[in-house]
């Protein structure tokens, strides 16, 4: 075997893990690919149905309801699934740490990357599909959309790095974290537009970086969209970077504990 530099070794490991995770994801259950596309569509359909049957039809300034929903739900999903999937990466790959080239953090990086790739494909397909059906969903500022999408993924990745440490060292934590994702869903303006929340509540919601990213992404999609005062992208970007740094620090500090858990 020829000598490889550390960077080469890491790239080889990422490649190998990526192929492995991708095959496992695709062939894991019979629906595989179909489900990946079907789940968000089903989710969005249910939400539309809920609104039609129960909710008052409310006017969202500057956006149609269905495109508004698609952007919000997919934006939240890329964050949520990157975080949730990474959380279990160490536990489900613990057998691999026998090969000393594989570090716990590699499994998280690869899982988040795979999740991001899959969600991006699904998102593009959904936007194209919705546009084909005649909805107003072609982004007016595609670059902004891409940045916001990336930020949402980075938030998921950063929290995934931290969650995975917690969930690996304290098994019970996984359930609590999963449960906390649910209220977050409602507090991020995914289905309930933040514009309709009381002003006093909005002030607290502005602490939520996911809400900032989703609203920014809607600005990128819909030219005349009006959200609440105080939405900015710099806040979630800084938040994500801080989480990633903190997560990587934990991964380095607790590496041996995570490996032998």
């Amino acid at each position: 075997m020829k000598e490889r530099s550390s960077l080469q070794v890491t790239l080889h490991v990422w490649h190998a893990l990526f192929m492995r995770e991708a095959t496992a994801r695709m062939s894991g259950d019979r629906l595989g690919w179909t489900w990946m596309l079907l789940e968000p569509i089903a989710h969005i359909s249910i939400m539309i149905a809920v609104r039609e049957f129960m909710g008052r039809i409310r006017f969202i300034p500057g956006a149609d309801f269905i495109p508004f929903l698609i952007v919000g739900i997919m934006g939240f999903f890329v964050f949520r699934d990157a975080a949730n999937r990474s959380m279990l990466a160490i536990n489900s790959n613990s057998g691999l740490f026998a090969y000393r080239q594989v570090h716990p953090v590699d499994t998280i990086i690869v899982r988040s990357a795979l999740e991001g790739t899959l969600k991006t494909i699904v998102f593009v397909l959904m936007v194209l599909g919705a546009a084909f059906l005649g909805m107003q969903i072609i982004p007016s500022d595609p670059l902004k959309v891409m940045v916001c999408w990336l930020v949402l993924w980075l938030l998921g990745f950063g929290l995934g790095l931290i969650f995975s440490v917690i969930a690996t060292l304290v098994q019970e934590a996984e359930k609590v974290i999963r449960m906390l994702m649910f209220p977050l869903y409602f507090l991020s303006g995914v289905i309930i537009p933040v514009q309709f929340m009381p002003y006093s509540v909005q002030q607290y919601l502005l602490y939520n970086p996911i809400m900032h990213s989703i609203e920014s992404m809607r600005y990128g999609f819909f030219q005349s969209y009006r959200s609440i005062e105080g939405i900015e992208l710099l806040y979630p970007i800084s938040f994500a970077l801080v989480m990633i740094c903190l997560g990587l620090m934990l991964q380095i500090r607790l590496k041996m504990k995570l490996m032998t858990q």
Partner: peptide, 23 residues
């Protein structure tokens, strides 16, 4: 311990070969 049950023997071997730079 390093074997992934849902993958074939060949796929598992490929994985280990890849991390050792045996592409």
């Amino acid at each position: 311990g390093g074997f992934q049950g849902s993958m074939t023997g060949r796929q598992n071997v490929k994985f280990v070969a890849r991390i050792h730079g045996g592409d």
